[in-house]
Design a protein around this nucleic acid. Structure first.
Length: 302
DNA sequence: CGACCTTTGAAGAAG
DNA sequence: CTTCTTCAAAGGTCG
């Protein structure tokens, strides 16, 4: 996308030429199904389970990893000690850390998402809320687990209701086959790092900002996400990596493609038009089209 | 009832 | 290879 392109160019300007022996052209990410892929030079040999999660873009780290105005691909060296959960395993890190786009909604300064992170309602000097590993999100449906609670990724087609008993008496064979197909539970995509962050922080933002509308909440959460330190974000990337790993174990043949087209969406053109069209946004106002990315200023001056 | 809004990231599709 | 598109969550809103 345009934003990513600009940031990538910025990264090049900021970090090239790279230190000798570092930041060479990144190894291509091995595809999920390509079990024969060789690990990148210097990357420990991964078990098949972790091959998909090898660090994709090794690039040199700046001196201060917390300087958020410098955006570049994350790398495992930024997180020494964090990605060492399993012998020989490497956590997947995002290819790029993109700059937040300008807000479309007139978000309240009282939420403090632009100038005052963490939120001003937090006690002075108090650390940003620590992430607690939500074991409920993982492991409740691990095969063999005593509590046979379905993994949250499995949902009925409606997304909200349990499957109803099937009434065979009124259906033909063809109908029943089609219906069975339609009623097959949908396996949802595993949540990415930001989605996990949203799940955990949504209630807090709702309480702080007395908002309920998700579109507005998500804008705030997006800003807060970018304001997180690299270490804080890394916790969610690690959790997301575990989610994907568990998902792969539970549903080996599953592909994100399986859910394509299950949501009826308007065409891309119409989708964009709707952004400037007559429909109101979550604030009851009419959204403007997203402006070009902000210049490369540190968050502290925004 | 279900698409839309909004966010980031992962992954598939397309060029 | 790069770029574009879809879908994950959430809940109010609207056609």
């Amino acid at each position: 996308m345009y934003k990513d392109t600009v940031y990538s160019a910025f990264n090049l300007l900021m970090h090239y030429p790279p230190p000798s022996g570092a930041g060479q052209h990144p190894q291509p990410q091995p595809p999920l199904h390509n079990k024969a892929s060789q690990p990148a030079h210097g990357v420990p040999q991964l078990s098949p389970l972790y091959e998909h999660f090898s660090s994709p873009h090794p690039t040199p780290a700046p001196a201060d990893i917390n300087q958020k105005q410098v955006h570049r691909p994350l790398q495992t060296s930024d997180l020494s000690g964090f990605y060492s959960l399993t012998s020989g395993s490497m956590g997947q890190l995002p290819h790029t850390v993109s700059w937040p786009s300008p807000p479309l909604y007139p978000l309240s300064p009282s939420c403090g998402y632009r100038q005052h992170f963490p939120a001003p309602t937090a006690a002075p000097g108090a650390p940003y809320p620590r992430f607690t590993h939500p074991s409920l999100m993982l492991g409740s449906s691990v095969p063999g687990h005593p509590a046979a609670i379905p993994h949250p990724a499995i949902v009925p087609p409606s997304g909200k209701q349990e499957l109803q008993p099937y009434d065979r008496s009124l259906k033909t064979q063809a109908e029943s086959k089609a219906e069975k197909e339609a009623k097959k539970p949908t396996i949802k995509k595993p949540l990415n790092a930001f989605m996990l962050y949203m799940k955990e922080m949504r209630a807090k933002v709702i309480a702080e900002c007395t908002l309920k509308e998700s579109a507005a909440i998500n804008q705030i959460l997006g800003r807060r996400w970018h304001a997180l330190s690299r270490e804080e974000q890394a916790k969610y990337y690690e959790l997301a990596r575990k989610e994907r790993q568990l998902h792969m174990q539970l549903y080996p043949g599953w592909s994100a493609r399986d859910n394509y087209g299950k949501k009826k969406r308007r065409s891309r053109e119409k989708h964009q038009e709707s952004n400037t069209g007559g429909k109101r946004n979550a604030f009851g106002t009419y959204p403007e089209k997203a402006a070009a990315p902000a210049p490369f200023l540190p968050m502290t001056v925004l």
